[in-house]
Simulated assay, not measured.
Amino acid sequence: MAKSVDRAVGIDIGGTGMKAGIVDLVDGQLVSERVRIPTPEGAKPKDVLATVEQLLDKLGSDADELPLGICFPTIVKNGRTLSAANVSKKWIGFEADRFFEEGLGRPIHFVNDADAAGLAELRFGGAKDQPGLTILTTLGTGIGSAFLFDDALVPNTELGHLQWNGDSIERYAAPTARERENLSWEEWAGRLQEFYDHVEFLFSPDLILVGGGVSKNPEKFMPMLKTRAEMRIATHANNAGIIGAASLSL
């Protein structure tokens, strides 16, 4: 195991589940068990904070003195959360960075969840040393995105909220839409194809990476997708948010 100075804690707060782990910052790998607790219903700030404390307790005393990064499924600018697609509306315009630091009694690093996943891929995964534009899409409760251009993150892209028939496209094409409408994998892949066609038309990426919870079942939908850019599963799949959040202390 790496020395403590080379490790950090990452916490990934999602619309459905909250996950945490200790990360080796040299090679970008989890060096602890990944712990998970369902996101509290309504995802209000005080309930999310309490769940973060439970996750840290599950990681044990090893996590107490390590740098801590937290990623969250909203737009994040200067420590404030500016949106709330899959969490309580109380997060809109909320001083989240200060709230977590005061509640936990320790410094934190705070970032959007898809941007954290993008950092994991940029520093330790499929986007490392990749020229041009890489777009990471995280397919989970919604659709998150990270733009990675020539080894740099362009923060707070929100491709899941591209307008589609008067609503955010994630309502139509996210994995939760497949579950909610009882779609077959083939039917859902057709919707996902429309999403990626739209993204390619707008941005012409050189590489598309697919992460998020559904990335653990790539054989069920990836063969049905066709894109001009190379498309592949993100190296760190559903652990990318934890790893990227932890890497903010680099």
Rank of each mutant, 00 (worst) to 15 (best):
M1C: 09
K3F: 05
K3D: 13
D6Q: 13
D12Y: 06
I13T: 06
I13D: 07
G14K: 10
T16P: 01
A20W: 04
A20P: 01
G21M: 03
L30H: 11
I37E: 11
P38F: 06
P40Y: 11
E41G: 14
E41T: 13
G42P: 07
K46P: 01
D47A: 15
V52P: 01
E53Y: 00
Q54F: 00
L56T: 03
D57T: 14
K58R: 15
G60K: 10
L66R: 05
L66P: 02
I70L: 12
T74A: 15
I75W: 10
V76Q: 03
L82A: 08
S83W: 03
A85N: 14
N86W: 01
N86D: 01
V87Q: 05
S88K: 01
K89P: 00
W91T: 04
G93D: 11
E95L: 08
D97E: 15
D97H: 15
R98Y: 05
F99R: 04
R106Q: 09
P107N: 08
H109N: 13
H109M: 03
L122H: 08
R123P: 00
F124P: 02
F124Y: 15
K128T: 08
P131L: 13
G132V: 08
L136C: 04
T137M: 10
L139I: 10
T141S: 12
G142P: 05
S145D: 11
F147M: 07
L148T: 07
L148I: 15
D150Q: 13
D150K: 12
E158Q: 12
H161D: 10
L162P: 00
L162T: 06
N165I: 00
R171K: 13
R178T: 03
E179R: 14
E179K: 14
E181S: 05
E187S: 14
W188Y: 07
G190S: 11
E194P: 00
E194C: 03
F195P: 05
D197K: 13
P205M: 02
P205G: 03
L209A: 07
V210W: 05
G211F: 08
G212L: 10
G213Y: 07
N217Q: 15
K220Q: 12
F221P: 05
T227E: 11
E230Y: 01
R232A: 04
A234C: 07
A237V: 07
A237R: 15
I242D: 01
A245Y: 00
S249A: 15
